[in-house]
Simulated assay, not measured.
Amino acid sequence: MRESELEGFRDLLTDVMAYYGKDCSEFMLTVWWEALHSFEMEQISSSLRRHATDPDRGRFAPRVADIIKVLQGTTTDRAALAWGKVLGAMSSVGAYTDVVFDDPAIHAAIEDLGGWPKVCRTETAELSYLQHRFQEAHRAYTERGQFEYMRRLPGDRSPDHEYLSHGLKLPRPALVGAREKAIAVLQNGNAGGKTLISSLPAHAMHLLANATGQELQA
């Protein structure tokens, strides 16, 4: 959550505690905020509803540890779904094409694993181990909430400067997942990281934003 969402979070927690006939003190708000601010408001709201409708736990007011337990399960599920996107793109996009996923945590996790070409060239026998490492990293980044990530994952192609020095446009990256979210990942990420890459020039960003049919549904 962002700082601007604090009041909305206060209202949500106050309503939940009122449902159980309890007050929401400033101390309670501070503890809950510090414990949950790395998650998204929608995730927290959904987890509170799940707690309230649980036949056993729902009879009692939630403690922050109860909701964290539910949220950790949520991030595990998201990591598994993210791996499905990566696995699909490994075969449909391949190591030679730049790729932009619709989830920044995927970018951060893949960079930790050595980059897009290395991930694509993983031997079949090693995929299970790669999946475990990816999902652990993805879950950690998701729980952290804020982190730096590459705006695009570079494929094993000629460097950007070779295109630009010949007056050629950079090849468009493949968009994986929801197109609008993938473009947001591209626009909000950085051009650095463990492997330095140059940012897309303005004309390439314009072409990408107006491209149609470029996204891939993994």
Rank of each mutant, 00 (worst) to 15 (best):
R50N: 14
Y19P: 03
F27M: 13
V64H: 00
P55F: 09
D77V: 14
R121P: 02
S92H: 01
A52C: 09
E40N: 09
G114K: 08
K118T: 15
M17T: 09
T30P: 05
P55C: 12
E34Q: 15
A89S: 09
I44L: 00
M17S: 10
D66R: 10
A18Y: 12
A52L: 06
M28H: 04
V64S: 05
A35E: 09
Q72N: 15
R63Q: 08
V64F: 02
H37V: 12
Q43G: 06
T53H: 12
D102G: 04
A105V: 09
D54Q: 08
P117C: 08
F60T: 06
D112H: 14
R121M: 14
L81E: 14
V86G: 08
G84C: 09
Q43S: 03
D23F: 10
H107P: 00
Y96S: 15
D103W: 00
R78D: 09
M90W: 12
D56Q: 15
K22Y: 03
A89E: 02
R63T: 01
K85V: 10
I106G: 03
K69I: 09
R59L: 07
K22L: 10
S47R: 00
K22V: 08
R57T: 03
M17K: 11
R121G: 13
L113F: 12
S38V: 13
V93Q: 00
V70M: 07
Y20C: 03
W32F: 09
K118Q: 15
S38A: 12
W32T: 01
E42I: 11
V93I: 14
S92A: 15
A109F: 06
E34V: 11
E40D: 14
I44A: 01
I110L: 12
T74L: 09
A79T: 06
Y19E: 13
T76N: 11
A95L: 10
L113R: 12
D112L: 14
E111K: 11
L87C: 15
W116H: 08
W32E: 00
A18T: 04
K22R: 13
A108G: 07
E34F: 05
V86K: 07
P104N: 10
T30F: 14
A89F: 06
A109L: 08
G58V: 03
W116N: 05
L29E: 07
W116M: 02
L81D: 11
L12G: 01
G84R: 10
T76R: 14
A95M: 13
G58S: 06
A95F: 12
P62S: 05
K85Y: 12
D23Q: 15
C24H: 06
A35H: 02
S91Y: 15
M41F: 05
A82D: 02
S25W: 10
E111F: 06
V64Y: 02
A95S: 13
V70A: 04
G84Y: 08
D112N: 15
M41N: 07
S46L: 10
S38P: 05
S47Y: 07
V99A: 02
K69Q: 14
K69G: 08
S38F: 11
D66Y: 06
R49K: 12
